[in-house]
Design a binder for these strands. Structure first.
Length: 198
DNA sequence: CCTGCGATTTGCT
DNA sequence: GCAAATCGCAGGC
């Protein structure tokens, strides 16, 4: 499958968050199929870039699309976003869960003592641990180099996608900006009847 | 300079 | 279900 290029990410953050479901994220050949994403932008009180508040940490979000916004939180976890929309529009997609596919044993080593397939990459912090992503990857493009995202394969041409409120935030919870592969068993949280309507 | 807390994960109750 | 772990960031003084 072709590698997603910069124009893919130069679109609405919601479109990108939706269209990334089913694509394959690899860091140096290790990773899997994206099954859960969330959208964040400058008009969103839950976002680091709310009101276009620019800081040293979130600076890459104001730059060109297709770059990695990695940040450190809770004193121990890294989270990976992909910058979207045209330069100057602060928006990004948080990658929340993968279906493990490539380099599974390497991911198991990094996630030890966890070894269950379903627990390797079913959370944004777990993805970064399994794929060895931290601030060294801050700002790097995801369309060339060590970090790449591949277009949907044959099995993922028309994934069933549902939207729900986002997870782990205290404001902006009315927005249904979380995108999930409806049939995946690798989501960070199971879908509920309440939040799963599309 | 100081303080509160977070786009989480884990393990214990 | 709930709290601990653990620390840099952002906002206030």
């Amino acid at each position: 499958m072709p590698i997603l290029t910069k124009p893919f990410f130069a679109r609405s953050v919601h479109t990108v968050a939706h269209d990334l479901i089913g694509c394959r994220l690899l860091h140096e050949g290790v990773g899997g199929i994206i099954v859960e994403t969330e959208a964040y932008n400058h008009e969103d009180p839950a976002a680091h870039v709310y009101l276009n508040r620019r800081t040293e940490r979130n600076a890459v979000m104001f730059g060109p699309p297709g770059r990695a916004y990695v940040y450190f939180t809770y004193g121990m976890h890294y989270l990976l976003n992909i910058v979207c929309e045209e330069e100057g529009h602060a928006a990004g997609v948080l990658l929340r869960a993968l279906e493990p596919a490539d380099g599974i044993e390497e991911m198991r080593r990094r996630r030890a003592p966890v070894h269950e397939l379903g627990q390797l990459t079913n959370g944004p912090g777990k993805i970064c641990q399994a794929l060895d992503i931290d601030l060294k990857q801050y700002g790097i493009p995801v369309y060339r180099g060590e970090l790449k995202i591949y277009a949907r394969g044959a099995d993922w041409q028309k994934p069933s996608i549902v939207t729900t409120p986002r997870i782990g935030i205290r404001v902006g919870t009315k927005r249904k900006w979380r995108y999930c592969a409806a049939d995946s068993r690798f989501l960070s949280r199971k879908l509920t009847a309440k939040g799963a309507e599309q």
